[in-house]
Computed example of a mutant assay.
Amino acid sequence: MSEMLRAPAEVEYAAELDWLESVDDGPKPFSWRLSPKMVRLFVLGSDRADGLDRPVRPKWFGDRGIVERAVVTLASDRGLLLVGDPGTGKSWLAELLAAAISRTSTLVVQGTAGTTEDHVRYSWNVSMVIAHGQSRASMIPSPIMTAMREGVIGRFEELTRTTVDVQDALISILSEKYVAVPELDEDNIVFARPGFSIIATANSRDRGVHDLSSALQRRFNFVRIPTVTNRRSEAEIVRFRTTDLLRRHRIALEVPPTLLDVLLQSFADLRAAAAAATGDDERLESALSTAEQIGVLEDAVLHGSFFGAGTGALSAETLAGSLVGALARRSPEDLAILNKYWHGVVEPRSRDRGGDWTGFLEGGRRAIAALS
């Protein structure tokens, strides 16, 4: 694990998953490693009512009904499609579910404009085909085919960014639960084993890029992941994910609650301004997601640790600089929006409240001036 830049969930939480499996006496669908109740508990964490000997900390912060519907879908013969805005935790939830159910979350197809049907089905080892001809040995299975053969969960990220041909390749897999290999004369069908399913994700902002056909939509259960609006939940998410990221960098630092409040309030203000805007030139290009808050906070902590005044502590000035640097993607549009926010909101708040808002005001001013 120390040699991995980012360990997958089944490795990161291997000890916890082993323990949950050892105390799990619930019914398990197919070849699942954990029962549905234990899958939910692994994702959302435990409480006293669960009666466990040790606590299980939450890893995804969201509505319990969303996780339950996702788990029930995966126990059926339909695929699961997680839909939501960027940064709402779709991929992280998919990884956690696959890790809990199958103990493998790395059978992933990343959807892009360059994804082909071979990425969903199979391809061939050309040198082996030349030397020995086409056979099962010379076939290179896709992550989805591997998941079929092993009876585990396969994942498909950003499904709506792929072309129609790629999407159509999933229809027969989800319907018939097999892949035909017409190049082979014998042993030319790969059947899915019990336990196989697909978790796909789709960015709601990509609507219209490559819309799903009605045939493919019928083979998925849609579960919508809402944007986190609860201040307390968002603070928990940011704190949890940032702690994990900093542990990876071997930086031991507690984020001051007052600075976390400044960050959360700033994003809330900017979201409100975006909602009230009448045109795209009045909105930041950023989705202002929770994931972007995590990125801003991580950047600020690392900057303070590497280039700070020697204490390694996070400062309001550094936080402001990281926020401006992360959100100012278009020039001059985004810079004008941020400058308006700093003058119209941050400056009066600095006069009224002082404290970290004063440093946040100065740091933001300097960052905006440097980019202008």
Rank of each mutant, 00 (worst) to 15 (best):
A49Y: 11
R149N: 07
Q110T: 06
A147H: 04
R155Q: 15
L82P: 09
R64L: 11
F42R: 10
S142H: 07
L96C: 15
V166I: 09
D50P: 03
G151A: 08
W124H: 15
Q134Y: 14
R78A: 14
I130R: 13
T160G: 03
A99R: 10
S123A: 10
R121N: 10
A169S: 15
D63E: 07
I66L: 12
D63I: 12
L170E: 00
S123I: 12
S142I: 04
L97T: 05
R69K: 09
T88R: 04
M148I: 06
V126D: 13
A99Y: 09
S142C: 05
G151Q: 11
V71Y: 06
P58H: 01
P86H: 10
D165I: 04
S105L: 14
A169V: 14
R33S: 04
T73E: 08
L159G: 00
V108P: 03
L81C: 04
I173E: 05
R40I: 15
T116H: 01
G62L: 14
G65F: 10
M139N: 02
L52C: 10
E150A: 14
L174E: 01
T162G: 02
A70L: 05
S172V: 11
H132P: 01
F61D: 01
P55C: 08
L97D: 04
T116W: 01
P58S: 01
E150G: 03
M148C: 05
Q167H: 00
I130V: 05
V120K: 00
F61V: 03
K90V: 11
D118N: 14
G79R: 11
A49T: 13
I153N: 02
E95D: 07
L170Y: 00
T116L: 00
L96G: 07
V72P: 05
S142Q: 07
S91M: 13
L107D: 12
T88K: 04
V126S: 08
A147R: 11
S105G: 13
V71S: 06
T112M: 02
G111F: 00
G45F: 01
M38L: 07
D85H: 08
V43H: 09
D85Q: 14
D118M: 10
G79N: 10
I66R: 02
V129H: 02
S175N: 13
E150W: 04
L97V: 07
L34P: 00
T146M: 09
D168G: 11
V108R: 15
V126Q: 14
K59D: 10
K90F: 06
T73W: 07
K177D: 12
I101R: 06
R64T: 09
P86W: 13
V166N: 00
M128G: 07
A98R: 12
I171G: 05
T88Y: 00
L81Y: 02
K90Q: 03
E158S: 02
S76N: 09
T163L: 10
F156V: 09
M38H: 07
A70F: 02
Q110M: 06
W92M: 15
T104V: 09
